[in-house]
């Protein structure tokens, strides 16, 4: 049971995506113009991640390893289409807001990355927990980043105006440059935190320092680890 708890919680802090393992940057940057969008995107990703991890783990013994990536993609695409249809039915305004980034969840490396790195090697239950934990972490991160950009860039949070009269929002932050810069600053803060814990001798965190500085955590591409 301890193992299950570990798999669930690792995504929340120890391997928090995308801040600690840099996965799935496109939606992170694109849809975090507001906290609500971040939350919505995160919810969609949780769903896709849990279901695809479930399916991959279920089928992991059947899928031949040569074509496994293609199979993972098909599974993910199927789940994404489901999500698309669900969103069209029940959350159409959000669907419009997220636009092209809903179908693009297919190629979000967090889905394939978890399928390849975890679900294809672990039993169903743990894989689902892994997906859930990672998805929750991703949602939290996106909501946080979206909230930050929304507060600073538009002066609102979840659509409500911040109760601070004199605040002049910096509208650049809800545009593309703001996305890059905010994420860069958050990652730098993460680095600083990691260095601080490493200096304190906390053995839990330091590994993430490496991960932040490379795309090796995705594990898919041959370039991983290449400098």
């Amino acid at each position: 049971m301890g193992r299950a708890l570990k798999e669930l919680t690792k995504g929340l802090w120890r391997e928090l995506p995308p801040f600690r393992i840099v996965l799935g940057l496109c939606p992170t940057l694109a849809v975090t113009t507001s906290a609500k969008n971040g939350l919505g995107m995160g919810a969609a990703v949780i769903f896709v991640l849990v279901v695809s991890n479930f399916l991959v783990a279920l089928l992991r013994k059947i899928i031949p390893s040569k074509v496994r990536i293609a199979c993972f993609i098909v599974i993910a695409a199927t789940v994404v289409v489901t999500v698309e249809l669900l969103m069209q039915a029940y959350a159409y305004p959000l669907y419009l807001e997220l636009g092209i980034f809903v179908p693009l969840i297919v190629v979000n490396c967090i889905i394939l990355g978890r399928a390849e790195a975890f679900a294809s090697k672990n039993p169903v239950f743990l894989s689902v927990l892994d997906g859930l934990g990672m998805g929750l972490g991703f949602t939290l991160s996106l909501t946080f980043l979206g909230g930050l950009r929304e507060v600073l860039g538009a002066g609102t949070i979840f659509g409500h105006a911040v109760p601070w009269e004199a605040f002049e929002p910096m509208s650049i932050l809800v545009k593309a440059p703001g996305a890059f810069i905010c994420l860069g600053l958050i990652l730098a803060g993460m680095n600083a935190y990691n260095r601080w814990t490493a200096r304190r001798g906390d053995s839990d965190a330091p590994k993430a320092l490496e991960a932040i500085n490379s795309c090796s955590s995705c594990g898919l591409c041959k370039l991983s680890g290449r400098d």
């Binding site: 650049i172 593309a176 890059f180 810069i181 860069g184 730098a188 600083a192 260095r195 932040i212 500085n213």
Partner: peptide
């Protein structure tokens, strides 16, 4: 600065390019 090395500085650069 050490904490900005790697991805953070690349992101900020990308932000400025995007600007």
């Amino acid at each position: 600065p050490q904490v900005f090395r790697g991805v953070p500085i690349a992101l900020i650069t990308a932000g400025l390019m995007s600007l």
